[in-house]
Structures are given as C-alpha cells and as structure tokens.
C-alpha cells in the first residue's frame, strides 16, 4: 500500500473542502478503500477520515419515509426495529451482506460507493487492461473467466457486475441520495458502463453523500430480499432480487409490485417490465414465472456467466411467491 497523508475532518465543510483536493479520497468504514489500496487499485494522495464527524449517523424512520445518515453502520440499520418492520427488504439486504465485522465498520454512504469485485479490476499487477481502472486500456474479462460477470447493462468496454445488496433494495423503492447541494434517485446515481466504464456514480469532486431517503409504501412494508450465492453466507450474490408487493383487498390481485435485481447487472437493476406485466393480475405461480422471465430480455452472456440468465428470473419468482405466502 502506497503511503498517503491523513486528515481527520471535524465537520462536513472540512470534508467537502478536502474532498475537492486532487488525489483526495474519503474514508468512512474503510472496507472498500483500504482493501483497494492494498490491491494497488486505489492510490489516494490524501485520505480524509470522515468517520469522526458527528450527527451523520442518524436513522430516522416513520411510516412515510426512512432517512438514513451516510455514516450509519450497515449493522445498525439492519437491526433497527422500524427498518425491519417498515422496510424489511432493506434490513434483509444488509444482514445478508458481507460479515458481522464488516457490517460494524461499513457505512451506508460507503456502501453505495463500493466498487466491483471483478477479479481483473482488483489485480492491476497481472492485468493492466481494465477500462474501469485505466480508461481505453481494454477489458481483461472479455475473453477471460466470466463466471461472476454481468449479463444486463453490459457494454463492449466493461461487463463488471455491481456487487452490492443494499442498493438493489433502494432502487426497488425509489430511494434518493442527498449530496447536500443536490438530490437524485439512487437509480440515476449509478451509471451503466457504456463507453465510460471508469464513471460508476454521478458524484463530483467535493460532493459528500449526506443521507439516503426511502419513501414508505405498502410494497416496502411487505418486501423481501432473496440472495442466491455460491456459499450460504459471507458471499456476494450470484443473483438476488428485492421485491415488494401490495395486494388488493381481495387478497390476490396485485395492486403494486416492485422488482430489482442484483448480482447480474452492471448497476442495481430495476425491472419495470416484470412489474408492468404483473400489476392488476392475480398472483399465481404461472403468471409470476412468465412475468419474471421478462427480466432477462436482451441479456448478453460471455460464456461462463450464462447460468445467470436462467437463475435471475427464478430468484425473482421465488421472492414474489414467498411474499404471496405471507399474507
């Protein structure tokens, strides 16, 4: 790990000023930044420690909305009683992520900013070609081992999977990220690679994530996060789905449904085609499976990740049917 200078920001203004310096990077929980610095991927000139700033870790939940401070820890949000009852998919996405130790360190702001786990991205010594790390250098994954790579939202420049769990639940429920001067939909905060794989987030130098806000809804209250992976715990998703469901008073017609996918796309992936196909329909297995198949229309595989195209609709269907059973 290359050395850097260290600055502890006492307040948000200091953090913003310092974050605008060339080569400066914010440090919250450090579970992405220090990891990537050790891999030689992140080479900050200055590390600005924001973890001591007071007041940015509040978790404020009402039936109307949840407002979560950028420095709130993943573990604290996952265990929050109101989050569990009013936004269960958010709690489930968090406690199924990483490990208990990492969740005690990692913050919600840092979580949104985590980078891909593409093994080529993480190994600059052996794989210099990576458009995400070094624009226009090429992509080592295309033509390489692609078992974990994305099938949705890919480009010729990059096929790296967005690895996180929380943001999948956030895009399902129309959450917003507050950057102080501006607010945007979490869905728009994440950028698909296109021709600019190096840009993953709509965030500018000097901007700091302040809070995320999740609007409350009946679908958010009846929601779940299903995560399928190579081992049962402490692993990134092979495919995951955040789903929320609201039924009409007849108990079987779908009034509102939210569906988002993780582990298979280059960004947290809302699938409105599935939602539209199900709204107004009766909830039965056949209808659900047919609609879920729409999630992977246009998917592109690179060999070893072909299985994700079959897996993703099944994970969605499992999540919807599971919610249907919990009347």
């Amino acid at each position: 790990m290359r050395d850097f200078s260290y600055l502890r920001a006492g307040n948000i203004e200091a953090a913003r000023n310092a974050a605008a310096l060339p080569g400066a990077m914010l440090l919250a929980g450090g579970t992405t930044l220090i990891d990537l610095a050790k891999c030689g991927v992140a080479e900050p000139a200055t590390v600005i420690d924001i973890s001591h700033i007071e007041g940015l870790n509040a978790i404020d939940v009402t039936a109307d909305r949840a407002v979560i401070g950028a420095l709130a820890k993943m573990s604290h949000v996952a265990d929050n009683t109101e989050v569990k009852s009013l936004f269960p998919a958010v709690s489930e996405a968090l406690w199924q992520a990483a490990s208990a130790q990492l969740r005690n360190m990692a913050t919600i702001g840092g979580n949104l900013m985590q980078r891909t786990r593409c093994p080529y991205f993480r190994d600059p010594q052996n794989f210099p070609a990576c458009n995400k790390r070094a624009p226009a250098s090429g992509c080592s994954a295309i033509g390489g081992v692609t078992r974990g790579h994305a099938v949705l939202g890919v480009s010729e420049a990059c096929i790296a999977t967005y690895p996180g769990d929380l943001a999948v639940a956030l895009v399902a429920f129309d959450a917003e990220v507050d950057l102080g001067e501006r607010k945007l939909k979490v869905e728009d905060f994440f950028l698909a690679p296109g021709a600019t794989a190096e840009r993953e987030h709509d965030i500018r130098p000097g901007e700091v994530i302040m809070t995320i806000e999740i609007p409350g809804s009946a679908a958010a209250r009846r929601s779940t996060y299903v995560k399928v992976r190579d081992r049962q715990s402490y692993e990134f998703a092979a495919a995951s789905a955040a789903v929320g469901l609201e039924l009409e008073s007849d108990g079987r017609t779908i009034r509102d449904i939210r569906v988002a996918l993780g582990g298979v796309a280059t960004k947290p992936w809302r699938v409105r085609a599935v939602e539209d196909a199900l709204k107004g329909k009766a909830l039965d297995e056949d209808t659900v499976r047919k609609a879920s198949a729409l999630a992977v229309e246009g998917a592109v595989d690179h060999g070893a990740n072909h299985y994700k195209i079959a897996l993703a609709p099944r994970v969605i269907a499992r999540a919807i049917l599971k919610l249907g059973e919990t009347a």
């Binding site: 990891d35 573990s75 490990s99």
Partner: peptide, 24 residues
C-alpha cells in the same frame, strides 16, 4: 478483510483490524 483472524473490538463492537487504519 476476508477471514476474521484479526477481529478486535472497537467501542465494544467487533471489527477487522486489517482494514482499520490505526489513526482512525
């Protein structure tokens, strides 16, 4: 950050010492 061998408590909570800066 992958094995847990370095687990310590900071303010009573378990964390990984290998991904924590001493200065922090």
């Amino acid at each position: 950050g992958q094995c847990g061998a370095c687990t310590v408590h900071v303010d009573g909570e378990r964390v990984l010492a290998c991904l924590t800066l001493a200065a922090q």
